[in-house]
Design a protein around this nucleic acid. Sequence first.
DNA 1: ATTCGACTTGTCCACATGGACAACTTATGC
DNA 2: GCATAAGTTGTCCATGTGGACAAGTCGAAT
Lengths: 207, 207
Amino acid sequence: MDKSNGQSDRTTVKTSAERGETTRAAILEAAADLIAEMGWGGVSTRAIAERAGVPHGAVSYHFRGKGELLREAALAAIDTLFTEPLPALDNATVDDVIAAAAQWYVQGLTERRQALVVEVMMACTRDEKLRDRFAELLDQYRTMLADVIRAEQERGSIAADIDATALASALIAALDGMLLHTLAAPGYDGARAADALNALVYQRGTR
Amino acid sequence: MDKSNGQSDRTTVKTSAERGETTRAAILEAAADLIAEMGWGGVSTRAIAERAGVPHGAVSYHFRGKGELLREAALAAIDTLFTEPLPALDNATVDDVIAAAAQWYVQGLTERRQALVVEVMMACTRDEKLRDRFAELLDQYRTMLADVIRAEQERGSIAADIDATALASALIAALDGMLLHTLAAPGYDGARAADALNALVYQRGTR
DNA sequence: ATTCGACTTGTCCACATGGACAACTTATGC
DNA sequence: GCATAAGTTGTCCATGTGGACAAGTCGAAT
């Protein structure tokens, strides 16, 4: 992750520790890829190893088991996936958030990395450890969105009599739902749904 | 499905055809259960057979393969799952739909049958046949919701300058997203999010 | 130079999986 | 009655699976 050398290719010889870190990272990334591609339950450690370009035994060495590997890979991937497209949410508006999300869906339709998000949420249903750790992440994002909403309510662009936290919950759900439909149905027009959502949010504010 | 006898127990002897239909139905129901429980990729034909109370070989006999079985089971289950809680949408309001959905989520949190919906949507990502057939269903529901919205717009309870179809898309996504979060995060307050959604939809209408 | 420890690699195993199928039971049409 | 077709059941097999592990490689510390 945070190595200071330019070379990161697995074949480039470095210290043991560095080499280890590199293959470990490769395995994690391959795992995240495959979760999105095949679904949480459709991933095999062998497929992960193959995609990462390492022998199957390397997985056993670096991770305690499949569950731990998937959890770690998924949470790391989601964190970067969420942080990357929303770099500065400080002065953002709900409008920005919705737009960023919508654009992210469209842009990412070719690579299907976003499916990871839904896969993780469904996996949370069956994996308590994952659920606990993901809940933290989620709460964090919900709180951030609620703050954005409150700021806009003070500015008057969003009706003040709507509970900001509840609205944040509804909006996050709506965005994830749009992601879900975008992934599942080829004909789903996410951008148009996003516009409708925008219209709902701002219809009574002083634009 | 449409048998006229009261007895439907598998052990009760009936005609060959009836017995066949019964075990077939048992397999389908077990399959739908297990998809919701274990995830699309986590289901095995053996587990299905065990849950249905039939020997493993029965699955091979009644279905061409695992994929066909899962598809058929999932689509049938979803159809009843959607139709059942919304019996008469004819004179319904958006309010009704949101309320019904929210209540459905809470009620169903113990049995986790709703997870099936999300599992199917994710499976659509990887199964073209399933995607095509599910898209029809989805389109049907979206159209119905759009009609409800238009009716309310004529009555004036929903702002008329919002595109009904787009709003329907956004609302369905929001509801599915709320389902997703309700399933994944134990602390998620779906009812409150539903209220916020309601407030958004009706905030400018003449209640 | 030698030892040491971290990482790698290939192989092994016990087990689950999906699917096929032959041998059976049993209602139904003749 | 009896042949027949539909449904059932147990068993078999090739393949995939997760995990373990011993032998090997190689740089680092002494």
